[in-house]
Design a protein around this nucleic acid. Structure first.
Lengths: 347, 347
DNA sequence: ATGAAAGCGCTAACAT
DNA sequence: ATGTTAGCGCTTTCAT
């Protein structure tokens, strides 16, 4: 920058002013500086700027697994919107080891990021609590947590509604794909969606059968397919599968087909998230949709607001929660009254 | 750091030594310093370190669209492996605007990254050429480009092989889904895969029908489905679809099913990349597979080698190219001899 | 094995 | 509207 200043016959500060645009610079001066920058092929050093300003313009995003359809969709939307706001995005994955979530949060300060968007798998209140001097954190997705800003859809209500829809089609033995109640160590998302499912059963006067609460080890298509195959092998009769994510539903569709069961004639299937593929499965999948861009812009708005608080040395306000509205998208996978899966052999 | 030094009764340099581990520190001193760091909840400032060292420990990754299954898979693998190597990963998307690719490369220096992994959509030689003083760049995927390191699978050969496989099943009118020959502005990947397809037809003594080279505007499931629907509407007979990516094949499966055509009884379908979902479609998809981890570790190895060159102030060696082996994965979507789609109406 | 001093590139504060 | 000064937090000489 000194070189540019010298070539343009100004001081480094003026070059800085031209770059940041914060302070007015006379037109002629600006042009000379600009010419000098072009001439020298000058690019500002963001490390230095970051050191000086205490802000890097990078936000961190931590998702369970970037290869999962929903996370990928989210990642795409975040990058797109962050780019529009002049922010770069650094990604981390949290699903590999359970401790990684805590590690990530506690070391967030070191990682050159101004703030963190975190989609926790099983974050407990304590994690945020234990760590002080954090950069702003926005939690997305379900988590019982009141120390940090949050953006989420009302999973419990959505799950109840989609279960009610399946009930309205005549299903009575509905499998919940994504996890049984398992205390604290289960996935937060799974917990709430299971509660919604149970709400619907209770309201319909049905008893919940624990055999129909199907745990899935790996939340992948293959993991879900294996879980449904095991359910079939256990000879448990059922006439619908309410999956806690679209990815799990994809696995269910596959396993049911391999078993010779038809969707929706024999078994109804629903998902959650409405990823692109959900509209193109065979049959297309009934699922819960919400506007991805609203979801992401709410998260970025919350972060930005915190940035400004800090810049203005204002006190941090109380944590905010934004609920993104959801809606049911009805497709062929629930069009009809299911005949049900009736085990043929002995259990 | 000064505070830590003071509390531990040493100089800042010693604290630095403890942190980096580069220089030996006496055991007792190390412990005192460590205790002081814990006491003060000290975290090193990476901006400062980056400024001083000229390296940030962040690499940039530019992919066309993070929501696409293949990109998402790649992103996942990159984050995972970079994490193991102590690198953080910053993502950008390039598909939105065509100019973004060039923008990205030319501004790479500003973005706090030590190196760039770029999956170009249509990068021409000139882009790298025009930009000087770049950080190390590794290109992944197809691109005619000899100025930067590259990692790729031999798309042309793979495409020829999968087309030959479809021919061996008896298909004769094979649609290529992903783009016709369109000169310089087409996608590099599409170009090579089309060439492989044409190679196979030629070797089989078949004439290529331009009507069967189906352009896809948006490389999404929906875009591919629309393109296949349009092909059907044009009343062009065909008995197989060789799609240039799995995502495109998913769209084809959907469109064919909606049109009442069965796969593989009426039409064979193949994909490319072997993303997870390819094994779970109805029917499961024959596709081209390659080991994702090898692909990514080759890219990271190339980058790391360049980092070391620069650190050692050695001259940059000539650019390297690593070809990752591929293999055909045969699944049900090509099991059988297709009856073919025979238009019923008049064209 | 440890310390002292200097400087990486930038910008906020203050001066002009 | 522009220049001067100082310092962000770290690490690399060079001493000791």
């Amino acid at each position: 920058m000194k070189d540019v200043a010298q070539l343009a016959g100004v001081s480094p500060k003026t070059v800085s002013n031209v770059l940041t645009g914060a302070v007015a610079v006379r037109e002629g001066t600006r042009e000379r500086v600009q010419a000098a920058m072009d001439e020298l092929d000058f690019v500002p050093n963001l490390s230095a700027r970051g050191l000086r300003n205490g802000r890097t313009g990078i936000i961190g995003v931590a998702l369970p697994d970037l290869a999962t359809a929903f996370s990928a969709d989210l990642a795409h939307t975040i990058v797109e919107q962050a780019h529009e706001r002049g922010l770069a995005v650094q990604f981390e994955e949290t699903a590999a080891e359970p401790e990684r979530e805590h590690d990530l949060v506690s070391r967030a300060r070191t990682h050159l990021i101004d703030g963190l968007i975190l989609n926790p798998v099983r974050l407990e209140d304590s994690v945020i609590e234990r760590v002080d001097h954090l950069p702003p954190v926005v939690l997305i997705g379900e988590v019982e947590q009141h120390r940090a800003d949050r953006v989420y859809v009302d999973s419990r209500v959505a799950s109840r509604e989609i279960t009610e829809h399946v009930l309205s089609r005549g299903a009575r033995r509905i499998a919940a794909l994504g996890g049984a109640v398992r205390g604290q160590d289960g996935k937060a998302t799974a917990g709430l969606r299971l509660l919604g499912y149970l709400d619907a059963l209770r309201d319909a006067g049905l008893e919940a059968d624990p055999q129909l609460q199907v745990d899935v080890e790996q939340w992948t298509i293959g993991g879900a397919a294996a879980a449904v195959e095991e359910l079939l092998a256990r000879q448990v009769p059922f006439d619908a599968v309410v999956a806690f994510t679209d990815t799990l539903a994809f696995g269910a569709l596959h396993a049911l087909h391999r078993a010779g069961l038809r969707v929706p004639e024999d078994v109804l299937v629903t998902g959650f998230d409405d990823v692109e593929h959900a509209a193109f499965t065979l049959p297309p999948l009934t699922t819960v949709a919400f506007t991805r861009t609203d979801y992401v812009s709410a998260a970025l708005d919350l972060l930005s607001a915190r940035f400004e608080e800090r810049a203005g040395r204002r006190d941090d306000g109380p944590s905010q929660a934004v609920v993104i509205p959801h809606r049911l998208v009805l497709r062929e996978s629930t069009q009809g009254t299911p005949a049900g899966y009736v085990p043929t052999g002995s259990p």
